[in-house]
Amino acid sequence: MSRILCIWKKELVSYFTSATGYAFLFLFLLLTSFLFFVLPSVDLKSGFRGNFFLQGEATLTDYFATFPVALGLFVPILCIRLWPEEYKTGTVEVLMTLPVRASDVVIGKFLAMVTIVATALGLSLVVPWTVGWVAVDGLDSGPIIGGYVGALLLGGAYCAVAMFATAFTKEQVTGLLVALVICFFLTFAGTAAVDLVTPDWLSERLKFIGFSVRFSSIEKGVLDFRDLFFFLSFTAMFAFLNVSVLEYRRLK
């Protein structure tokens, strides 16, 4: 455990002593707020529905709807320095010679990333607080709790996927592109827009793995065990695969 904590601390310090951590927080907060407060939300059926002020409803559904896109975009960027940089500078060799297991390294790095995502989500709590200023009957806490629980699980899943995707290459740009493609595929799989152009046999399967589809039911305020299990198992699976990649590289 102490080894995991050591790696977690080292990664966290390196994020916040460079611009990466701050840039992630800044971009995440700016993009999600901009999409929610300024840009009109789009619905395939009813078209433009207006932004938060024009819709006039004291709900954060549209705010949470921006999370899959924002996290799918920024988490891979956060990830590019995890493995490619270690490979490039050779520090991964040093790391592997230390008395730590590959799983400790992966979990430590994963927890550091999840901590940054959690920090971003924590800072974004300002949004429900400010929306509460104009809500006539106050806000329903259920969907907000659900939204943040779901966002944390979603963030964790993205972190695991992006870590796994970048673990294959030494090139940062290649790693970033691979991670972005996978994250965007998972973000938009099964959504209404994609569903329209998907063959019938594939449609239900994509909905099964689509992050946005899974997240949308949690953000309504319903914690469905199936969705929670999906996100947790997905995260565990990719973390395990990441460990396998490291083991494979070490053995190779």
Binding site: G142, I145, F208, G221, V222, R226, S233, F234
Partner: peptide, 19 residues
Amino acid sequence: LIVANLWMTQVKLRWDLTE
């Protein structure tokens, strides 16, 4: 994990957090 997820589709357990 894929099998477990498919099996979980039968489980109908959920918590409604809305007020």
